[in-house]
Amino acid sequence: MECQCENYNSENAASAGWLGGNSVQMGAFTVVGYLLYRFSQTLPALIRWPIRLFCSLTGLSALWGWVSRLVGTLRGIQSLFKWLSRIWRFIVGFSSRFKWVAAVIRAIAGSDSTSSSSQKPGLRLILLGPTGGGRTSLANTLLGNSETRTPIGPLMESTKRRTAMDGRDLTVIDTPDLLGTSMGSDRRASEALRSLQLASPGPHAFLLVIRAPDSSEGTDQDATQAIQAVLELFGEGAVEYIIPVLTHADRLGRKNTVDELLKVDAGRLRRAVSLCGQKPELVDNRPELPSEAQGVTWRQLVGHVTEVMELRGHFVHELQRREDRIREELLADMASALARKLGHM
């Protein structure tokens, strides 16, 4: 018979007296009572009853009953977690044997997620070149069937156009005659900075559009001089982002590749290649070109620009870097002023 069967009133009185003590006494009695009670379970019955009587008189048996219920609850929770873990192991084992079902479900219902995850990073291009090189025609070729094609006629200011093809957004900045003499120095400078602003945070490439050598009855356009003019406008750091684009490929006859043009070159095209480090692209930019051929030109140029982007990122002008530094310093000064103001409040 357990010690709880002793006189109920005396036990309650002892419990009340024990619980009314301070926290140190309560902790000490709890430890002692627990140890005695557990120790009594291993003793013979003749020796066990005095210990049980002590527990009853001091009220520790009531506390032990509460502790026993708490331990039972915790053991029940532990059993529940073990049961749930067995169910989880069964589900994992079952699903590992039928992975092909999940693959079929993803193949049937995952077309939308696949298309969204295959979205390629956008590209930003600035088109430059002397008048007559086919700069605006190339912009229209890059824009394809987009409704934002560059309007026909001389361009008076930098314009921004966008299109999407093959899962990639393309931003094309067409510029006026920045490399020629038709504009004053102030206007050229402002339009150059405007083109950078339109291509913010920076272009991935400058497409330098000039006529291919021997493609016209007029004077050939010097790619080296054009590159030097670009560097005067945008700084020496732009040289790594310049891609020469040779237009009017339909007028070259048998010299219809870049390698063949370099073979017969007198040296100007080779100097341009060595200066910017990029092999030129030869394109046919006729407006009446079939859409399939325009798509080939689009992929040809976009592929080259993508290589530059993966290698160097986007171009940042020195003035932009200076502006960022000034902005950071201004924000730091404002933060310090605000901190001082809050400190005096």
Rank of each mutant, 00 (worst) to 15 (best):
K160V: 00
T171W: 07
T175V: 00
T141L: 08
Q119S: 15
V172E: 11
D174L: 03
I152E: 02
L125F: 06
P176D: 10
E191P: 10
E147L: 02
T150Y: 06
G122E: 15
S115M: 13
R168L: 08
L170H: 02
G132T: 01
E157Y: 11
L125W: 07
S137T: 03
A189M: 05
N145V: 13
L196H: 02
R188P: 10
D174M: 02
T159A: 14
T159Y: 05
G184L: 06
T141G: 04
E147W: 04
P151H: 12
R135I: 14
L196E: 08
D174G: 01
P121M: 04
G132C: 00
I126K: 09
R161I: 00
S158H: 02
M165T: 03
G122R: 09
V172H: 10
I152H: 07
T114F: 09
R135E: 07
T159H: 07
T159Q: 15
K160I: 06
M165E: 12
T163G: 11
G180N: 02
D177F: 05
T175N: 06
G129N: 09
G167D: 05
T171H: 04
R187H: 12
G153A: 03
A139S: 15
T114Y: 08
L142V: 06
I152A: 12
S116Y: 03
N140L: 04
T141R: 00
G144C: 04
T131N: 10
V172K: 14
I152C: 01
S185I: 14
L178G: 01
Q197H: 11
G144N: 05
T114K: 11
L155N: 15
L155S: 15
A192D: 01
L125Y: 04
S182M: 07
S137V: 03
R168T: 13
L143V: 08
S190I: 07
R194G: 13
E147R: 09
S182I: 06
T114Q: 12
R135T: 15
N145L: 15
G132V: 03
T148R: 01
P154T: 15
K120T: 06
P151Y: 12
M156N: 13
S137Q: 04
L142E: 03
M156L: 13
T171R: 02
T159E: 14
A139T: 01
Q197V: 10
L138V: 15
R188G: 11
D166W: 06
A189N: 09
L170I: 10
G133T: 09
D186N: 09
D174A: 04
R149N: 15
A139V: 05
S158Y: 02
L193T: 13
D186L: 10
P154S: 15
V172N: 06
S118F: 00
L142G: 01
G153D: 01
T148L: 12
G122Y: 12
T114H: 04
R187Y: 12
L138A: 09
L142I: 06
G184F: 00
G133K: 03
N145H: 14
K120D: 00
T163N: 09
T114A: 14
V172Y: 08
G133F: 02
R188K: 15
G134S: 03
T141F: 07
T175C: 01
T131M: 14
S158L: 01
S185V: 13
S190V: 03
